[in-house]
Design a binder for these strands. Sequence first.
DNA 1: ATGTCC
Length: 382
Amino acid sequence: MEHSITTSDCVAVVASKKTWIEQLAIDQLTYTSSLPGMHYCVGMPDLHPGRTYPVGAAFFATEQIYPALIGNDIGCGMSLYQTSMPLRKAKLDKLAKSLKGVEQQCLKHLDEYIDAFKKDHQLHTSSFDHKLGTVGGGNHFAELQRVEEIYDAALYQALGLDKSCLQLLVHTGSRGFGQSILLAYQSQFQTQSLRCGTHEFNTYWQQHQQALAYAQLNRELVAEKFMLALKTKSEMLLDVHHNFIEKIEYKGITGYLHRKGATPSTQGVVMIPGSRGDFSYLIQPLDAEKSLFSLAHGAGRKWKRGACKARLDQRYSMQDLQTTSLGSRVICQDKTLIYDEAPEAYKSCAQIIEDMVDAKLIRVIAKFRPVMTYKTEGSCGS
DNA sequence: ATGTCC
């Protein structure tokens, strides 16, 4: 079997030859690895190009951090909920009807919860708070799923999953708050690194930690609104950021691990989502030191955002895109977004999972089928 | 990816 990890001095890519990775993403990975203070960089099998830096990679730097590498969505991540909604009651038309206006719900107990949370975390945000509990754009989503196949019954049971009821997977981040932190930093430092111990490092670091809490709160609020709309309950099984900086020790060196769309392998079981027309995989991370304690955060884009509508609008109408080949339904009133996030724009999640299994980075616990993918009800795109 | 504007 061919090796799934290729390594040069300090840059590695976890991917088999079967997994297509755009050259631009490799170039961006190499470029980023050459920045001052960068020691080790690992591209995951979902590696794809970003604006300047690649997405789907982990970077270990010493003595400094790169806020521009993390970008605006500080704290973006995935949370998984076990709901109490039985599959037999989960009819698509009924679910869609229940979810009408799900994000627009303004409820007193949510406001009280937000206030208490902000106090606890010493958050003094305000101008973005009206967007708390909304999914946002891009690859963000909230998806109702059901268990398709179980591969590791013991791990599956230990998590408290119930295949007779729906699961909810929430992918979103810190919304306008993270954006404001990035903009404040960029206006002063453009893309420069911040050296640890300096005042500007400490300022960013504190805001970064707040954005992590804010992103987590946002996911929790989205889940809560879904439960209210569906008139059911849920239990959170996991909540993991995949876009953030963490201070770690690696090979005896203390430094800063930048996860740019890379799932931590150090926080127990995690979910690796496929596109809306593909399965998602619940996995147990194994020893992932060789991949900088990180894993893929999804299937990875194959086509760049913005190029999808032109490639697909002869083949599919808006209505075509509201269902998938797995029989799931899509709620997305934004035309550009529904094309940009088409299943065709993403790689096969099974292939990404296979690469990580071959590299001995993960064990697969279960596979989940999408039932209903919620993107946005806002209709501004055309 | 976000907010805002066309």
